[in-house]
């Protein structure tokens, strides 16, 4: 507990400074928010446009699909707001700046990601929360305390899955140095969690459920909530998968940090 407070305090201090320093570049700050807004609205609009023509997609109607869409974006928020610096890991590894993470008496992952907070993603956060409330209303979900709790647990599990996958992919930088292509590649895989996985053929469904757990990022929990009605034990699979993936991610990170030798002679 004491350690947690210690870490939180350091994080808050760095985050506050980071936000302050970003505000100095007013135009950049503004365009960041605007960009995030435009991107999210446009990708949301593409669903709207498609549903102008068809009433439903693979048994999912308009509001259900938007709920899935909103949930997916909510799940990616913790990673995109707090762990954005993972995109620059390969940079830090290549230039040798990563070495500084070793020289602080802190967890290396924590130290690396702290001091960089992507406030502009709050736009997407607000949009997705709005979308979830709006579509949730339209879908007449009957909330109970247990359902709410399970929903929260599933959300946490999904967020941990996504974060874990991001950490694992980013960690490859310790071995292959330039891993931009892997980072970009794994972004494409998110499409398998953004749509109902039932639209894909069997091999894909199998692969993205049991091999790479992308199905657990949005489809599995939303399907449970919207299609199964009452809480069952199977709702807990998502949190379990989340913990598993995250634990694996921590392991991979540790191994990477250990074998990284820094640049220069």
């Amino acid at each position: 507990m004491k350690t947690l407070i210690y870490y939180v305090r350091i994080y808050m201090r760095l985050a506050a400074q980071d936000i302050k320093s970003r505000m100095v570049y007013k135009v950049d700050f503004f365009f960041g928010f605007l960009g995030e807004f435009v991107i999210n609205v446009l990708s949301f609009l593409s669903i709207v446009v498609i549903f102008q023509t068809i009433p439903q997609l693979a048994g999912w109607d308009y509001y259900e699909l938007l709920f899935l869409y909103g949930f997916f974006h909510l799940v990616r928020m913790p990673t995109d707001i707090f762990f954005d610096k993972l995109w620059f890991l390969q940079n830090a590894v290549r230039t040798g700046d990563f070495i500084i993470c070793y020289l602080r008496p802190l967890n290396t992952l924590f130290y690396f990601i702290s001091g960089e907070i992507r406030l502009k993603n709050i736009t997407a956060l607000v949009l997705s929360v709005f979308l979830l409330i709006y579509t949730g209303n339209k879908l007449h979900i009957s909330w109970t305390f247990l359902k709410g709790l399970c929903f929260f647990l599933m959300f946490t599990g999904s967020a941990l899955t996504l974060l874990g996958i991001r950490i694992i992919v980013a960690s490859t930088a310790f071995w292959v140095i330039n891993n931009v292509f892997l980072m970009n590649f794994h972004l494409k895989l998110y499409d398998f969690s953004r749509y109902p996985i039932s639209i894909f053929s069997k091999p894909f469904r199998f692969f993205f459920t049991y091999v790479l757990p992308f199905a657990f990022i949005a489809y599995v929990p939303v399907n449970a909530l919207l299609k199964t009605g009452d809480v069952t034990l199977s709702w807990l699979i998502t949190p379990l998968v989340g913990c598993g993936v995250f634990a694996l991610a921590c392991l991979v990170w540790t191994l990477g940090v250990r074998q990284y030798t820094g640049t220069g002679t």
Binding site: G96, I100, G115
Partner: peptide
């Protein structure tokens, strides 16, 4: 290398 945060006073 700077060990200080580059955008912070």
């Amino acid at each position: 290398r700077s060990q200080l945060w580059w955008n912070i006073p």
